[in-house]
């Protein structure tokens, strides 16, 4: 029971209180870049959830069973980014072979994810926060969910903004930033929430 409560608290923290995009400023490029259409936002979100969970799993294992025993923690950045890059490649190939339909939906987004700083960010955070294996995986999952949530919300707003009358200079990126600011303001209300 206590474990469940801990997991719940972690989910709330990762999705709302410390939202990766709006509170931690991670993964902004896809957040601004892939949020013009709702369905592509959904595709990107799913791909990110998947890769973040996988990346959390593998980087934790590499840190604990390779870098720490060999006392080469200083290679963390290189090891993690290479792990994530190869993981993304691998996932891309596997999905392409086994689930062509899924590949069609996610395919274009997968290569973009390597340079999504939220993925490397969650991997490093898991280590810094000294999470156990299970919690590291869960943190990856919840962080991905939080990212997807705000990405979808943003896409919904931007689809409507398309039809709104805006001053010419504010169209596109500038208004997207302002909208993000308003969302961040709303999410600020969650800060200080704890269980």
């Amino acid at each position: 029971m206590e474990l469940l409560a801990k997991i719940f608290a972690m989910a709330i923290a990762a999705i709302f209180v410390q939202n990766f995009v709006l509170a931690r400023f991670l993964g902004l490029c896809p957040y601004i870049g892939v949020s013009k259409k709702l369905d592509s936002a959904l595709g990107m979100g799913m791909a990110v959830i998947f890769v973040m969970t996988m990346a959390s799993t593998f980087t934790w294992l590499i840190q604990t069973y390779l870098l720490v025993p060999l006392k080469i923690e200083f290679l963390q950045t290189i090891a993690f980014i290479l792990t994530i890059a190869s993981l993304v490649q691998l996932v891309e190939m596997i999905i392409q072979k086994t689930a062509p339909a899924l590949y069609k939906a996610l395919g274009v987004f997968l290569p973009l994810i390597t340079t999504n700083c939220a993925v490397l960010g969650v991997a490093i955070l898991n280590i810094n926060e000294e999470y156990t294996f299970i919690f590291a995986i869960l943190n990856g999952l919840f962080a991905g969910l939080g990212f997807t949530l705000v990405l979808i919300l943003m896409a919904g707003i931007r689809e409507r903004l398309e039809r709104a009358e805006l001053p010419r200079t504010m169209r596109g990126m500038p208004i997207a930033m302002i909208v993000a600011g308003c969302m961040a303001l709303a999410f600020l209300g969650f800060s200080g929430l704890k269980f």
């Binding site: 200079t169 504010m170 990126m173 500038p174 208004i175 997207a176 930033m177 600011g181 303001l185």
Partner: peptide, 25 residues
């Protein structure tokens, strides 16, 4: 206060980008 909190970052950035657009025209 809002300027140094997270929302302020987005708002300032958005306004600056708008300003850059204005200059380009």
């Amino acid at each position: 206060l809002v300027a140094i909190l997270a929302p302020g970052a987005f708002l300032v950035m958005g306004l600056l980008m708008g300003l850059m657009n204005l200059k380009k025209k």
